[in-house]
């Protein structure tokens, strides 16, 4: 992944956030990761001028947030003229068929269920890292 792509991680569980970050780093992804523990601060950041004119970004999004549903955030991102091209990776514990369909309908690019089994979890995140290293993210302008 080009060095300039910033990763925005919206994840309310600090433990999860830390594990995700660790495993991404283990996959040799050194891009800047900005962590937000709730939806409103994440949205505030995403819709700030700083982000809108500051190069490509990729969003890691959890669905179960304390203040709002991840799907609401997804909807807002995907309906925004400039942000909608940013790749969104849903990373959540939910594996409900209906929820997955809804996220793809709203325009999420990848949906990953967090496995409880840590081996699988770290594998999944590392593979995501490998995936991130090859994908191209468009500029936000």
């Amino acid at each position: 992944m080009p060095h300039s792509v910033k990763i925005v991680m919206i994840e309310d569980d600090h433990g999860h956030a830390r594990l995700i970050e660790k495993n991404i780093r283990r996959a040799n992804i050194s891009n800047e990761i900005e962590h937000f523990a709730d939806g409103s601060s994440a949205l505030e950041h995403l819709f700030s001028e700083k982000v809108l004119n500051n190069g490509p970004l990729l969003i890691l999004l959890d669905l179960n947030l304390p203040d709002m549903s991840g799907t609401d955030i997804l909807e807002k991102i995907k309906s925004d003229e400039r942000l909608r091209r940013a790749p969104v990776v849903i990373l959540t514990t939910t594996d409900d068929k209906v929820e997955i369909q809804r996220c793809y309908d709203l325009g999420c690019n990848v949906y990953i269920t967090k496995p409880v089994e840590y081996e699988s979890f770290s594998d999944a995140i590392r593979q995501l890292g490998l995936f991130l290293s090859v994908i191209q993210a468009p500029e936000i302008s």
Binding site: G15, H16, L19, V116, S122
Partner: peptide, 17 residues
């Protein structure tokens, strides 16, 4: 069951760590 799963991910994860 979903909310219970989230902490389990941590328990499992950090146990492995």
């Amino acid at each position: 069951s979903h909310d219970l799963r989230a902490p389990l991910v941590n328990v499992m994860g950090y146990t492995s760590e």
